[in-house]
């Protein structure tokens, strides 16, 4: 019974009907994290006092915010669809599990501590630590994503 159900699900999964669906979703995913992680990184570089220094951290954060959301929306729409193409494999993949933990931490961090530091124009060691944590978390999400195919 269980087995025939699995077969039915596999046969009827619309995400696996065309060989193009998965790679196209992957391209949207890549574009999504260029928008989201790219714009978050610009805020981080401002907090680190290296680039975008003609604006204050709060200005950079406000400028980038809608584009970060835009990128996150692309990622969080394409990502679950990639997942649903083969849920059993992803669910059990340790790298995927790690990626989800880091993604959750990244999102929470971005909209709490990171956002507060940027909007309050934090400077000095505190701002630099926040920026470094942000960069490491988002780089970790990408590492987790890549390693899904290698573990």
């Amino acid at each position: 019974m269980q087995q025939s159900d699995d077969v039915l699900i596999e046969l009827s999964n619309p995400l696996n009907e065309s060989a193009l669906t998965f790679p196209v979703l992957e391209c949207i995913h890549i574009l999504g994290f260029a928008f989201s992680i790219g714009t978050i990184a610009m805020v981080d570089f401002r907090l680190l006092d290296v680039w975008m220094v003609r604006q204050t951290p709060s200005q950079v954060a406000r400028d980038m915010a809608p584009w970060t959301i835009f990128g996150l929306a692309m990622m969080l729409l394409s990502g679950p669809m990639l997942f649903l193409s083969d849920p059993d494999m992803y669910y059990l993949n340790h790298s995927f599990q790690m990626k989800m933990v880091l993604l959750l931490l990244g999102l929470v961090f971005n909209y709490t501590i990171h956002r507060k530091a940027a909007l309050n124009d934090a400077s000095g060691a505190r701002a630099k630590v926040v920026a470094a944590v942000s960069l490491v978390l988002w780089a970790g999400v990408i590492f987790g994503g890549i390693f899904i195919a290698f573990v």
């Binding site: 890549i30 574009l31 994290f33 260029a34 928008f35 992680i37 790219g38 714009t39 990184a41 610009m42 990128g71 988002w138 780089a139 990408i142 590492f143």
Partner: peptide, 8 residues
Amino acid sequence: VAISIFGG
């Protein structure tokens, strides 16, 4: 990682 920052 570099692509996402450069691309952004």
